[in-house]
Design a binder for these strands. Sequence first.
DNA 1: CGGCATATTGATTGTTGTCAAAGATGGTGG
DNA 2: CCACCATCTTTGACAACAATCAATATGCCG
Lengths: 235, 235
Amino acid sequence: MPTHLIRKLARYGPLSDHERRILQRATDRIRTVEADGDIVADGETPGHCRLLAEGFAARTKMLQDGRRQLTAIHVKGDFLDLNGFLLSPLDHGVLALTRCAVAEIPHRLLTEITEEEPNLTRLLWRSTLIDAATQRAWMVSLGRRSSVGHCAHLLCELCVRLEAVGEVSPDRSFRFPITQTELGDALGISSVHANRVLQELRGDGLIVWSGGTVRIEDWDRLAALASFDPAYLGL
Amino acid sequence: MPTHLIRKLARYGPLSDHERRILQRATDRIRTVEADGDIVADGETPGHCRLLAEGFAARTKMLQDGRRQLTAIHVKGDFLDLNGFLLSPLDHGVLALTRCAVAEIPHRLLTEITEEEPNLTRLLWRSTLIDAATQRAWMVSLGRRSSVGHCAHLLCELCVRLEAVGEVSPDRSFRFPITQTELGDALGISSVHANRVLQELRGDGLIVWSGGTVRIEDWDRLAALASFDPAYLGL
DNA sequence: CGGCATATTGATTGTTGTCAAAGATGGTGG
DNA sequence: CCACCATCTTTGACAACAATCAATATGCCG
């Protein structure tokens, strides 16, 4: 696993060299998944968990009638289904939003870690707790923010998380190549409305979004519109 | 701690007698909190986590303008802030919806457990992962279900969870004494609309809700309306 | 130059929020 | 036991927001 990914994990807690070596060995096998492909099928009972080494992925939950809700967006360095280690079958699918590189970590190895490496175990546990805190922030957006505020919040969150893995340029621009339908599924709105939300953010001079890259033009106003507080990200 | 609470935890995984004794000792000190009181203040850095022995509690997140979103409703036997063990300060508050009895477990003891009891550690970790799965189910409701479907889903979920701790009568009735304002804060709607949603569910003969107790009159139609699948609860 | 996916626009409908008022309920002290 | 009060529930009218439908435009790729 590239060193910068370990650095991301290390932000969640101190790591000894021994523990770093364990993580490196755990993540040496990398697989590629094409855009729009399932990284994990909903309801799967997988034998290993996955760490996203490159690209964008999303957790998805479907309703019978075909409506879909994204419950998380994952960036480089995130675990995609560490929860699947202790929760099977998984209650959601994981979709590749772009072409992704994914490291696979056998559950057998995670069991060993929980038996012998309490500090590393707490670190992994903590990473799932930060996932849960992020979900709570999304719940507030879904329930209580306007669509525009919700979208602003998502962009602020992504910017901070991508910055932590060195994916944001000095002008606060970053790649984020998703369709407006997928954005709508993340925000819990229709794709048509997602389009209008983007136009409002663009029209107010808060962001520029085209060709799959976003640039935040006015961070302060965007964060105020979203009432964004990054504390929950644990960075 | 009363034995039935251990039984609830044991549903999440097998427990040896030794592990049961550890949990019993951990939860012998019980505190009472009055209705509407803060069990945990938002942003607190607590030295212990809490297990709900009696009553109803909710995780709350506030926006600056006073709007509020409940991100979880807790029933007897649930951990209220086990996430606070590895996540501080906490990103949410915990509110007593009714008078509550709460057991307090020092973080020091949790650290010992993670050092010496891998099986128990995985059980506790798993319980936070089921919390997270429940949050994902709520996100789908918030984003993609109608208000009526969302409310139906919440009632189905509560019924199943309360049944697991023996709090549901044979006629599918259970105590759930919360105000319509609090219900609205859970569903992400106004209290006025919460009232109309309840009237619709009552008018269709799906539930009876008065005097703080709910009775589900037609489980099949309620579950269908909610497209409810209890798998995520891990019970 | 098509052909396909995605983005954009306008018109209309349906859902939900807000405001304001009236009714019901439960608890308290006289 | 009753009167009073605070809190909660219910109702109606209206405004704001977002979904849906249908059409058009744009961009990308072979």
